[in-house]
């Protein structure tokens, strides 16, 4: 606690808490996933929520294009009365809240750029944008991302999810050598 007399600069505020033991965090995550299966009969997800948001934006800007495109229609016809009143949209809003809550408790909420020492901030932003675009395309082809396919599909032993998971690790390790200057 700061008192008027010690006038501490921001730099000496308490350090962030260490991350949770990975096995403990994994058990916690696994129990959340199990709860989702027991309560809802479905697993977790993330990319589907972005697709819903994207479809609503496309529907607003280019309604004629959206009306004739089955990809956007799938998302525009989903939801409880509105395409954004969709299960994954609310789940991802929860992820945002839960991540923020954990970050505040661990004193890790701070405006930063995550990168290695040898790449500029602009370069990092460009690669983040490019990586996100690859993810968006890959997740739509595979019908899910690391959450929906690898984690959720993995736990119910879906054959396609396990093939997907192996390929995610293969792609990520395959690209690692080329991207080493970004991270190290």
């Amino acid at each position: 606690m700061t008192t008027p007399s010690d006038a501490a600069p921001a730099a000496v505020r308490r350090a962030p808490a260490p991350y949770m033991n990975p096995y403990l965090a994994g058990i916690g995550l696994g129990l959340v996933l199990l709860a989702s299966y027991l309560v809802m009969g479905r697993g977790l997800g993330a990319s589907g929520a972005f697709s819903s948001a994207c479809a609503v934006a496309v529907g607003a800007v280019a309604p004629a294009h959206a009306a004739g495109n089955p990809f956007w229609q799938d998302y525009l016809q989903a939801g409880v009365g509105h395409p954004l009143k969709e299960w994954l949209v609310f789940e991802v809003l929860g992820v945002l809240a839960g991540g923020f809550l954990s970050g505040v408790l661990a004193r890790r909420v701070r405006a930063t750029v995550e990168k290695g020492p040898r790449i500029s901030t602009g370069g990092r932003f460009a690669l983040a944008l490019a990586g996100g675009a690859l993810m968006g395309i890959g997740a739509k082809l595979a019908r899910g991302c690391t959450s929906g396919q690898a984690l959720s599909g993995g736990a119910v032993l879906s054959a396609g999810s396990w093939a997907f998971m192996l390929m995610v690790f293969a792609g990520a390790y395959g690209a690692a050598w080329f991207l080493r200057r970004q991270w190290r």
Partner: peptide, 11 residues
């Protein structure tokens, strides 16, 4: 899709 996503993860 998995391969693209994996490359996108490292990028």
């Amino acid at each position: 899709g998995g391969l693209l996503l994996g490359v996108g993860f490292t990028v």
